[in-house]
Simulated scan of single mutants.
Amino acid sequence: MSQGKETIVSYLTSIPAWYLATVEETPEGAKPHVRPFSFAMMQDGDIQFCTATTKDCYREMAANPFVELTAWKPGAGWVIMRGKVNLTDTADAATREEGFKHMVALGETWESADDPALTFFTIEEAEAWICDIDGSWNPIEL
């Protein structure tokens, strides 16, 4: 398992929310679209993220798979990770259950962990850094 991926998950799960940027195609052209996320979990050496097939972010990632996420942790700088989304849902039962419980705790309504709209994705070809106010970008080996 990648120490770098564990670092990313530790960062993302130690704060209430982090932010994922997608690309939204508009009549005026491609525009960034940023929203809060809060679920990340390691499974089989990959970071699993959770959303719904009914959300704008899923549609945007299907149309343009390039994303960037960022999270600021007080006293520790911020993390940046960018790459290409893989929307193939490979979440196992344990990951699905954790994602389901997490989303329900946020106030979302789901039939069960097997609700077909609840979906998981990974980020491939990823690059990541831990950054600081001094301007440093320290690469994380993924």
Score class of each variant (00 low, 15 high):
Phe49Leu: 07
Gly99Lys: 00
Leu87Asn: 04
Phe121Ile: 12
Gly29Trp: 01
Pro27Cys: 02
Met41Ser: 14
Ala126Lys: 13
Ile8Val: 09
Leu106Phe: 07
Trp129Leu: 04
Arg59Leu: 15
Gly83Arg: 11
Cys57Tyr: 00
Tyr19Asp: 09
Thr70Arg: 09
Ile15Glu: 02
Thr53Tyr: 00
Ala71Trp: 03
Ala93Leu: 09
Val67Gln: 05
Pro116Met: 05
Gly4Pro: 00
Met1Gln: 15
Ile15Gly: 01
Val104Asp: 02
Asp114Ala: 04
Trp18Ile: 10
Asn64Trp: 02
Ala52Cys: 11
Tyr58Pro: 07
Ala117Tyr: 08
Phe49Gln: 02
Thr13Tyr: 02
Glu111Val: 14
Lys55Ser: 13
Phe120His: 00
Tyr58Arg: 12
Thr53Trp: 00
Ala126Gln: 13
Cys57Leu: 11
Ser38Thr: 05
Thr7Asn: 09
Leu20Glu: 03
Phe120Asp: 01
Cys50Met: 06
Ala17Thr: 15
Leu69Ser: 04
Val85Tyr: 00
Met103Ser: 09
Arg35Tyr: 09
Pro65His: 01
Trp72Tyr: 12
Asp134Trp: 09
Trp129Pro: 06
Val85Glu: 03
Thr22Asn: 02
Lys73Asn: 14
Arg35Asn: 13
Pro74Ser: 13
Ile133Gln: 10
Ala52Ser: 12
Asn86Gly: 03
Ile133Arg: 13
Glu6Gly: 06
Ala17Glu: 13
Asp46Phe: 14
Trp110Ser: 03
Asp44Cys: 14
Ala17Lys: 13
Glu125Thr: 11
Leu12Asn: 08
Thr70Gln: 09
Gly4Met: 11
Phe121Met: 06
Gln48Leu: 06
Cys50Thr: 14
Lys73Val: 14
Ala93Arg: 10
Phe100Gln: 00
Cys131Glu: 08
Thr22Leu: 00
Glu108Asp: 11
Glu60Leu: 08
Ala76Thr: 12
Glu24Trp: 09
Ala113Thr: 02
